[in-house]
Design a protein around this nucleic acid. Structure first.
Lengths: 203, 203
DNA sequence: CTCTTTTCGCTACGGCCGTTGCGTAATGGA
DNA sequence: TCCATTACGCAACGGCCGTAGCGAAAAGAG
């Protein structure tokens, strides 16, 4: 990694931050649908070519923005998995709700489901974006996978539990409802979900 | 519902079928990304305005196409939930794989994940499309929900099982992997998933 | 047959995405 | 100092989505 020893004119760091700031502001105030690259460039006072040199696609820019907003959700094993997961899933749901309220323009119906779906579509459209999205979710959820393993080792969960599958059940149910069913996501549903997942369906 | 008693020039039914045929052919051979409304109209030998009078948006047209391809997955309770669900989820996975191979143009990486994600995004963008997508999945999955209830009444599943949540766990895990994780979806994963869901995680 | 209504094809347009070409600015190297 | 390299701003373009205006065609109503 050679740093600061490149050949030609260096990239303007100011341009990066101005673009990202303008883009974030526009995304929050107008939602994804009304988000226009031309407008971002104008607002950042930057030529469109300068923007496209950094993010080769509107999708790349959007995903970069969303990735910036993602923090690893802080969770730590307390000895009570159910309580920990309730808090964790509750924060996910609250985060989606926050995105929804922020991303809603006055007129349109652009919701958090919209933004998440656009990110998923962008991930499918471009291989590198897909890799970035996977990495983003991996980071975001790493601590919880760790927590699940601790709970298993601690005897709160069965020894044979497949933690990856377990996590898929939890996150999958939430996103399935969000993206496809369009059903309500609230604390009550989180409780129902955890009850079902922990108890198991059989017999 | 007055039928055939409307005032002006009737809509050409031939136009409908020619548009849908052309659109389907183009979707299958090029994938979603390269799908162009202008091209559909040209191929169907129809003016663009004629197309837009029927489907006010590219999203509407695409979802109408996908909905046409969906059949209710046939399942019937055999007395062995695990076997029935294995077959059902296996068919879902196979269907997604079929879509992937069909929708792949020579160059791009357009997969079934892409088509599903675009449908989800379209559902979020337009309220009516969202309603149609929900209805599509409801029809598609109605039989399985019925099956789950039968299995519960038959004593194979716990009496307190929340079948809606149970279904969310199953379908959600698959779509979460498909859309976000980008992980492999195959029969082995279906087995792992069913094991986890039926057995339960706790203790 | 004439009038009204709705659809049709055609053309043109505005907005957006992403690309290209060109002259200019900023940096390191010889 | 002069050169090669890379970034910048600007302008223009092609492709696509969705819309608007227009005259013509196809039906029912009087």
């Amino acid at each position: 990694m050679e740093r600061g020893a490149r050949r030609g004119r260096p990239r303007s760091e100011g341009a990066d931050v101005r673009i990202l700031d303008a883009a974030l502001e526009l995304l929050l105030e107008r939602g994804y649908v009304q988000f226009s690259v031309d407008e971002v460039a104008a607002k950042a006072e930057v030529a469109k070519t300068t923007l496209y040199r950094r993010w080769p696609t509107k999708d790349h820019l959007i995903v970069a923005l969303v990735a910036r907003l993602q923090d690893a959700v802080p969770v730590e094993y307390s000895g009570d998995v159910r309580a920990d997961l309730t808090r964790y899933l509750g924060e996910i749901v609250a985060g989606l709700d926050r995105m929804r309220r922020a991303g809603r323009p006055a007129t349109a119906d652009d919701t958090s489901a919209g933004l998440v779906a656009e990110v998923a579509a962008a991930a499918a459209r471009h291989g590198d974006v897909g890799a970035a999205v996977q990495e983003m979710f991996r980071r975001r959820n790493a601590l919880v996978l760790n927590l699940l393993e601790q709970a298993r080792d601690n005897g709160e969960l069965r020894a044979e539990v497949d933690v990856d599958v377990l996590f898929d059940q939890l996150a999958g149910a939430l996103y399935y409802r969000l993206l496809i069913t369009g059903a309500v996501l609230d604390a009550a549903y989180v409780d129902r979900l955890l009850a079902g997942v922990l108890r198991g369906a059989a017999r």
